[in-house]
Design a binder for these strands. Structure first.
Lengths: 246, 246
DNA sequence: CTAACGCTTTAACATAGATGAAGAAATTCG
DNA sequence: CGAATTTCTTCATCTATGTTAAAGCGTTAG
């Protein structure tokens, strides 16, 4: 269970070291970043659309999600974030946030002032590159989500998002061999996949009847990974796992 | 008409200068990048899913698009690119491309070897930051596309993509006051919006009958911008125009 | 000039998923 | 603990969009 700041930082450092030949100064600079620890309840806001960020947040524990609303009030979830993710690194480079970020569960965050981050980025180009890659992978995931909502039917969409969670939660150390706890309502799944809650429910029931998933409350077990993968058309290339852990 | 390399480079430099306090060395380094000019016919490949890039391409003239296919052969278009765009900057930082990039029209490209780019990124942190912002905006656009296919109905999706083209082509100097040439088939629009060609046709006809657009072949005129915007629920914030031209 | 091709439009019909409503389960709160 | 609230499931119905097919049109090629 990676839930101490120290563990999350070390994990991040290992990730970054895969991407650029960091030197000791890079490591020091990263660990010397000023931050404040903050504990948030479920549903609290980290970033609000239209505001400019004063901090970027490293998730130490808990989950968060990014979303955006249309004029007529429909919400689209854009991504989910796990411990170790730097949410809103872009906040330190873009003046105004075009989306909202909220916690999904109770969460601990390390808030880093954007000024310090910007400084780090110019002082330590290799670290900047490693962080850049975080945002590139984030973008790659977003593109796969376009495919998900644009091309797959309900069954494929749900299967796909369950596969993605499986990979990402495993990487964050939040999944056992039998499955994972998904602290997300069906309404969240609906808003992430562009379906209605009613149809998410139907679809999950179908997947369950087909034996592709098992559920106990919000714990998701995947009896046959290959079957779920093929129902989803899931190809993990887009997660760029080679850039995340070796 | 921004169609010479020189003009495109200067435009890029001005864009970058908005984002970071560049010094003369940055400018020099940018202009000293090695490149080869290449002219491509419509439909040629720039990057192929699964390959690793050897070059990143700056579009000098013409349009390109990024896409991805599902297992069962459905294509989803992920973005369109205009002159001045650096397509596949991520190619120099991620090992394997998870999507394909193809020209839409005849196009001229300046191909920059990824090695030289990587070098530039470490040598000139401020330039790297400016380029990073390009990729962040790209990601912001991708997120808006998730909203587009996830939440809007056909009319909204088409209206939205037409609004986006209007803004982006204008910025690239490819649009007059009356409208713009959109060298894209309805099949492209369908694959970008997650609709069928038949329904794109229907929807365009409807928009035209409603007086929201006029078409002459592939020239799109927008008689009433505000009306189209509101049909689309278009809010240009996500294009981060302040980071693109002042 | 005509044939061939690619793209668009229209039509008739089929269907996945939306909508609305209501009851069952689970969770939270006093 | 029981009441209130939030989620989840199911049903019946409706609709936006998909499907298939065919005709129209413009451009290119022979």
């Amino acid at each position: 269970m990676p839930d101490t700041l120290q563990q999350v930082l070390e994990r991040m450092l290992r990730r970054f070291a895969l991407r650029a030949p960091l030197v000791q100064q890079d490591r020091d600079a990263l660990f010397d970043l000023p931050f404040t620890l903050r504990s948030l309840e479920p549903g609290q806001w980290l970033i609000r659309e239209g505001n400019s960020a004063t901090n970027s947040a490293l998730i130490v524990s808990g989950l968060a999600y990014r979303h955006k609303s249309t004029i007529d009030g429909d919400r689209q979830i854009l991504s989910f974030h796990v411990p170790g993710d730097f949410v809103d690194l872009e906040g330190s480079l873009l003046s105004v946030a075009d989306h909202t970020v909220q916690t999904l569960t109770q969460a601990e965050l390390a808030l880093v002032p954007v000024g310090a981050l910007r400084q780090l980025m110019t002082d330590r180009p290799l670290l900047a590159q490693a962080m850049w890659i975080d945002t590139l992978i984030d973008a790659a995931v977003a593109r796969e989500w376009i495919v998900n909502v644009g091309q797959r039917d309900a069954r494929g969409r749900i299967a796909h998002i369950l596969c993605e969670f499986a990979c990402r939660l495993r990487l964050a150390g939040l999944s056992g061999d039998d499955g994972y706890e998904l602290p997300v309502t069906q309404e969240h799944l609906a808003d992430a996949t562009g379906l209605t809650t009613v149809h998410v429910s139907r679809t999950l029931m179908t997947l369950e009847r087909e034996g592709l998933v098992k559920r106990l409350k919000r714990f998701i077990a995947i009896p046959d990974w290959e079957k779920l993968k093929s129902a989803a058309g899931f190809n993990e290339l887009y997660l760029h796992l080679d850039q995340v852990s070796a």
